[in-house]
Every structure is written in structure tokens, then in C-alpha cells.
Nucleic acid binder design. Sequence first.
DNA 1: CTGTTCACATGACAAATGTCATAAAAAAGT
DNA 2: ACTTTTTTATGACATTTGTCATGTGAACAG
Lengths: 200, 200
Amino acid sequence: MIRILLAEDQAMVLGALAALLNLETDLDVVGCAKNGNEALQLCQTANPDVLVTDIEMPGMTGLDLAAQLKALKSKTRVLILTTFARPGFLRRALEAGVNGYLLKDAPADQLADAVRRVAQGLRVIDPELALAAWSDPNPLSERERQILNLAGTGLTNQEIAETLHLAEGTVRNYLSETLAKLDARNRVEAYRLAKQKGWL
Amino acid sequence: MIRILLAEDQAMVLGALAALLNLETDLDVVGCAKNGNEALQLCQTANPDVLVTDIEMPGMTGLDLAAQLKALKSKTRVLILTTFARPGFLRRALEAGVNGYLLKDAPADQLADAVRRVAQGLRVIDPELALAAWSDPNPLSERERQILNLAGTGLTNQEIAETLHLAEGTVRNYLSETLAKLDARNRVEAYRLAKQKGWL
DNA sequence: CTGTTCACATGACAAATGTCATAAAAAAGT
DNA sequence: ACTTTTTTATGACATTTGTCATGTGAACAG
């Protein structure tokens, strides 16, 4: 019997996924968490075989959660179940030590199979997504990502400079370099592209 | 036996929701659609009692779908199941004639109850969301919304002007008026706010 | 210790954005 | 037919964004 913990911030989806997995006679959903912190706690008390988790959750993301479990040398294997077919997310997921990465637009019957494979120690990742991840590396430096993130929220260059303790001209330079790297005409295009690619 | 059609672009969530609803002995999921067009076709052939649909789907949104069913004088009642707690979406949903509006962060057991109530001709809407909808009207005109939508994709004022067959100065005037209405300092802030409020 | 690289800064300039006053044409109301 | 309202446009100006050349200081390599 494979013991599963589910983490997903949308309660409706959480309950539905639990119903789906509990249809399988060899799978048992032992806990449901609505956020990363709750999931971390439940992993430590219930010690499930597999954690199935979304990425975007309040407080702690699924990627943070995976990294934490790895740091704690937990035996629980992590299967990411997310909306985002973004190579940047997959790369970060692998770096965080996850064992599987499944998209929510995959057929529902793949979930149970993926959970079984992950429980056996196999890695479950869509091959096309894996290929895109390595052929589409994040071209932005850490500073560029910080600045683009802030620019995408509507902060002015001056406000970004104050936030990051840089000169306003430095921010303009970094942004200009970022636009060139992403082949974007302005910060709006750059931000959307980077978001879409999972680089932010 | 209440016959249900599900529409949701994420196959995993679609299958999970079907599993959840099929646990109830008085509910029967007679079809699953991955997009609005497919859902519309299935509604006409399967003639379900209730359509449970997301809003954001490729091709035709759940709101467009509801409006189409209304125009066709279909007997199928529509229950929206969405991520967005945005008053603007709820208002548009009611205008489109939907019978229920449920958020995906509601508990899973509320879905079956909501489907039953909608099937009985009752309206199912979170009261707090309803209140927010009417106390937070969309301040933007149709033209302002068109222009802000395009600005949010990174188009320049000149490009927006060409797209909408206006003068570039006219676009600047409309955008300036929009920023004033939303108390935003620039188009990025305005776009994010309007998106968050469901006004776009 | 010296040379190179990287992160950050300065300054000048062009282009784009945003503000505001004013006005013309079309649509709507009387 | 006339008046009012709405939509769109023009022009001037200020501010912000983006480009680019050049430079400084810290960190790193030899």
C-alpha cells in the first residue's frame, strides 16, 4: 500500500485529487495539506511514501518544500503536479531533488501510475519538457531577475534602485541588458516572456 | 439521477473532478470537455442537467459558453467553478446567465451540494463574493479596457493606435484617463490591478 | 603584486510615456 | 433643426525609459 500526502492550495482540487487516488486499491491518501508549511509538518508526522504537491502555494512553494525535505534527508519522494509547462520550473524542481514532475494537463490516469513509479524510486518527467529545460537555459543573472521581477510589478527605475540599494542608472543598465538578452522591446514584454519561460 | 457535464482545460483536474462527483450515488458525469467548443457540442448532444465549467479555457471561455447556452435557450444549468475570486468575473457570469459560481478554494464536498442545488433551480453564489461584485463596479469604459489589455501585452502606444485605428495621442489620452481612474502610476500597475479585480 | 573580470556607477542623448489644455466631428437628446 | 454629450484628435511639455560609451572599485586569477 503506497501512502500518499497531497499538497494543493485549492481545496476543491485537493479533495478531487484525493478522490481520484483513493479509487486505486494500492494507493492510500493519508493526508491533505493546503500550504507548504502544513505539508512539511504532515510529512514529518505521517511519513508518507510519496508527496504529491503543486508548486504555487502560499508561504512555501512546492519547490521550497522539496528542498526542505531533501535537507532533512526525508525518505518521502516528491512528485510535482503543476500547471506550468515551464522549463525553468522543471530545472529548479530537479535541483530541489524532486522525483517526478507531472503537468495538470496530463490525463488523470497518469497520476496513479506516476505515483507508483515514483514510489519505486523511478523518475517521472515528461521527456519533451526535460528536453526543453536543457535547451532553453535561463539567460538572466540573479541581479537581472531581481530587477525584472520588480519592474514587472510596476515599480519605477528609481524605486527599484532604492529597493535594491543600487543607483538608478545601474538599474537602467541592467534592464537594458535584460531586454537585449530576451529580445524584448520593453519591460512589459520582457517580464511576460520570462514569466512564461519560468525564468522568474 | 443528476446528469453532469464537466468542462476544464486541465485533464488531470477534469478527471479528478469526475472521480469526485461520481462518488455520489445520485450524480452521474455523462461527459468531459477540455475546451469551450467541445463543451458546447456535448451539451447539445448529451443534454445534461448541469454543466460545471471553468472560466479560462482555450477558444471559448466558460462565460462565453454560458452566454451561448442562454442564447440557445438550453435547459442545461451552468455552474462556474473557477480559481478567480474576482467580482468582475462574477458580474459577467451573472450577466451571462449562470446559475452558480463556486471557487476552487471551497471545500471539495461543497461541489456535489452545489450541483444538486443548481439542478433544483437554486442559485449558488458565495454571498461575500456577491457583495464585493456590486460594491466594486468596473470603472473602465470599453475603449479603456481594450487599450489597457493591449498595453499589458507590451505593445507601444503607436502599435495600440494602429491596432485600434486611433491616433497615438488618443491612446495616450485614454491610458492617462485609465491610470487616473485606477490610481495607478503607470500601465504596469494599472494592468495588474485591473486583472486582479477581474475588470479585464 | 599585477592584470583581468565583474558588479556597479555616471553622464549624455533619443525615444516613449504620461499630463493637460483645447478643439473637431459624430452621435444622441430635445 | 439645434444643443449637448461622447469620442477622438492635436500639440506642447515634463517625466520616465532605454541605449550606449566610459569609468571605478572589489573580487579573482596568475
